[in-house]
């Protein structure tokens, strides 16, 4: 299990990176934290002509608040996020999610951009940006575009990033006032990718659910935003009955597959159970926060 040969580049800027990517015309791979790509190289399941290492590009590492969003440079380490006071105060749900990403020693190197660009169907960050309506900022030699999760995650390990293009920033809206949230995941062991995970953020103003955000992952090739579930909550509130109905609807909306760890039916069932748990917890929290 040793990597195949490749050319290695360590550019210092995004422009330099894009220039190198352009030279290889889709045959180069970007190396972020390496927590997935290095394993794939060791298994020789990936054999790019070149690796372009983003670790020496300082401009890709930052967390800042801007325009009602937290903006993360693609190379921001998961560990930085986990211990960021800014994230803790503006988007605590993300801390909860981050603690479920692998283990502390993998979060040391693992990055938000790497996780999102790798697009594992059960990974935490893709589910989080999908639920919270985040944005992916992609850059290429021809410019910058901002892509919404529904357009970004195309299926198992597949994204909208085009050859010659790179993910440079991830944007997630900060927590609205009067909100509660939850990240519920079921995995066979701690630190594993989830069998199913549900992310939710509920905003309740004067007893009315003004904004519900619910996404599921592990239930198909890409995380799915469950808009019809959100509509039930926005219409009927976050009481027990509405949550029951919303959870049942969630299970109808997903289209999971079977694998070694769980059957499709079980995943569908878990979607219902975890949606109910997530919504119940979030609703409880929002009541406490109000």
């Amino acid at each position: 299990m040793k990597p195949p040969p490749f050319e290695y580049h360590d550019p210092k800027t995004v422009d330099e990176t894009l220039a190198i990517l352009g030279r290889y015309g889709g045959e180069a791979r970007l190396l972020a934290g390496g927590q997935s790509l290095m394993a794939l190289l060791n298994f020789r399941l990936a054999s790019p002509a070149a690796l372009v290492d983003l670790n020496p590009v300082p401009e890709l590492s930052y967390i800042r608040e801007e325009g009602g969003q937290l903006r993360f440079g693609a190379m921001t380490r998961q560990r930085q996020i986990e211990f960021s006071p800014l994230v803790a105060s503006r988007l605590p749900l993300m801390i909860e999610a981050t603690r479920m990403v692998g283990h502390l020693p993998t979060r040391t190197r693992g990055t938000i951009g790497g996780s999102i660009a790798h697009a594992d169907p059960a990974a935490e960050y893709p589910a989080l940006v999908t639920a919270l309506d985040g944005e992916m900022v992609l850059r290429s030699a021809s410019g910058t575009r901002v892509v919404k999760p529904a357009d970004f995650f195309k299926g198992f390990f597949t994204t909208a990033i085009a050859p010659g293009e790179m993910l440079v920033e991830v944007r997630i809206p900060v927590t609205p006032a009067h909100s509660g949230w939850a990240f519920e995941e079921f995995s066979r062991r701690h630190g594993d990718f989830a069998i199913v995970e549900i992310v939710t953020m509920l905003t309740v103003d004067n007893g009315r659910c003004t904004r519900a955000r619910v996404a599921a992952s592990g239930v198909g090739g890409a995380p799915v935003r469950l808009r019809p579930v959100e509509e039930i909550l926005e219409r009927d509130g976050v009481g027990e009955r509405a949550i029951g109905e919303a959870s049942a609807r969630a299970a109808e909306l997903v289209d999971p597959t079977s694998d070694l760890h769980a059957s499709a039916d079980y995943r569908r069932h878990l979607t219902r159970v975890l949606t109910r748990r997530a919504l119940t917890r979030a609703a409880l929290q929002v009541r406490g926060n109000n």
């Binding site: 066979r188 062991r189 701690h190 630190g191 990718f193 070694l260």
Partner: peptide, 28 residues
Amino acid sequence: LYEELAYDEQGQALAGSFMDYLVPTAHE
């Protein structure tokens, strides 16, 4: 509870990594 060297009907091994062969951790 966790570990199985599973195969499909055609004899393909399904647990070729520690991602799929689940060794209990301190948490379990």
